[in-house]
Structure formats: C-alpha cells, structure tokens
Amino acid sequence: MTELITKSRLEKVLKNGHQAVTSECGPPRSSDPAHIIEKGNLIKDYVDSVNITDNQTSVTRLCSLAACIHLKQQGIDPVLQMVVRDRNRIALQSDILGAASFGIHNILCLSGDHQSFGDNPQAQNVFDLDSMQLVQTVRHMRDEGKFLSGDEIKVPPDMFVGAAANPFGDPFKIRVPRLAKKVACGAEFIQTQCIYNVDKFEKWMEGVRDRGLDEQVYILAGITPMRSVGMARYLSKNVPGMDVPEELIERLKGVEKNKQSEEGITIAVETIQRLKEVKGVAGFHIMAIEWEEKVPEMVERSGLYPRPAVD
C-alpha cells in the first residue's frame, strides 16, 4: 500500500487497493440539519465517504462546511466541496482551516456553476482563484505548512485533495491535458461528471492511461441514475457539458412510465459494472440527486457491498 498522508477514510480505501464508493448529499435550504443527517445515515454503510455540495447550481443553501460537520458527527467521512465562485483566497484558506479543525479530511476543489443559474443572478462572483489554483492552495497549506502569504501554519490542515473532471466538456482534445494539469497542481483524487456516454468516457480513459495519469491520481467515475425519460431529455438539452446519448433516451422511452426509474437504476448499475473493468477507474462517485434512498440498492446490485473496513 502507498503511504497514507492524511486521516481520510477515502484515502485509506483507495490506497488499500479497493474500488472506492462515494456519494453526495445536497444541504437543505433551511437552518434545520435534520434532513441532511437523515440522508447521510441512509447511505452511511454503503459508501466510504460522502460529498457535501457547496451551494450547487448557485442556489443558496446551508453551507457545505456546517453540513460536513453534521455528517462527521454521525461517523461519516465527509468530502467538503468548495467552489471558488463565492470566496476569495482569504475566505478559502480560512474555511479550509475551519474544516480541518473539525476533522474533515477531504476536499473537492471546484469552480462552481455560474451564479446566473441560481437564486441570486444579481450576485457578484469572486473567482479570485480558479479550481486548479485552489488545489495548489490546499496542497501548499498541507505540505508546506504555510499560508499563501508564506506565513507559517502551526498545525496544517490534514486533507486529501480532490478535483473534478468532465470528460464530456469541450474541447475534447484538451480534456486529458486538463486532467494532467490538475494532477500537476496536486489533485490526489478525481470525481468525474455523470457518465452516460460510456464509449466516450472509455476513450478519455484511454488517453488518461496513455499518459500514465491513472497511476498518479485516483479516478472515481461519476454515476447519476435517471429517474425518467424527462430527466434524460432535460440533462441532454439543458445542462452544458452533459452528454446523454440518444439510445439511452430511447431505452427509457421504451419502458412504461412507472417503470422508468427502475430502468434508470438498472442502467446506472450496468454502467458501474462495465466501468469496474476499465483500467484506471479507482471507484465510483454516485450522485443520486435527491434520491439518496436508492444508493444502497445501486451499491449492492453493482457488487460493491459490503464496503471494506479500513478504520
């Protein structure tokens, strides 16, 4: 096993050679944490770590850091998602220390959806750093024990550092080089965009392997089950950077309306099973948006249950 650097459970699972399973929960639009705690507990035994989204789609919610603390208190290993849209480098470094002080040992560094998609399109956006520079920042804080200013951090943040990758974004030809850049910045794990076009993902993975990037970073394949043909059409037409092949829409259309969600789960399970065999896929990131109760079934049917005991 490669040497462990942090106390992250996700890192332990990956470095013990297991295919990791992560999932994610969106915090509530409320100050009541009950719902996120409930969601966390629903999937706790079926995943290694749980991402908490950071005001996803720019809609204001309970903050990612607080939600991570709630999950941590349930014995879950949280992955703090942090977008650079809303915080400058002072706030980012400050939140990283705050998270580490609560024993949050994973961070996913993201740009964040543009605020025009959210509930406050009039908001100023920050983008002091970009997602790659945030990866560099966390690694600098952890490994050098220093702030960006060069000042010493007496107790550096102990965090396993991740980034996202979208193999389906354009231009395709730079999507492998872009991953290489994130690796060069210090990303230790990657969670990808939802994969529906498996052929294209495999083509991207081929490029990733050609450059040996799969040996340098753990790649978790992103999986989101379709709940209906309507959702498939919506994602295909309205979400930039999402690639939903027509044949998948046709397959969902071919089953009765009340069976479409079941078919969506089956498609997701088949995708996981196919990708389990792809060299360089180190695990799965299951994003069952507001459908967390289906995560256990997906994990079990994919043969990824029980989760390894590494603690």
Binding site: S111, F127, S131, K181
Partner: peptide, 10 residues
C-alpha cells in the same frame, strides 16, 4: 478562469 475551460464549455 486562468486555467480553463470549466466543465460547462459546450
């Protein structure tokens, strides 16, 4: 972004 594009480029 100084190291773009983001995942939304389509």
């Amino acid at each position: 972004l100084f190291n773009g594009p983001c995942g939304g480029s389509s």
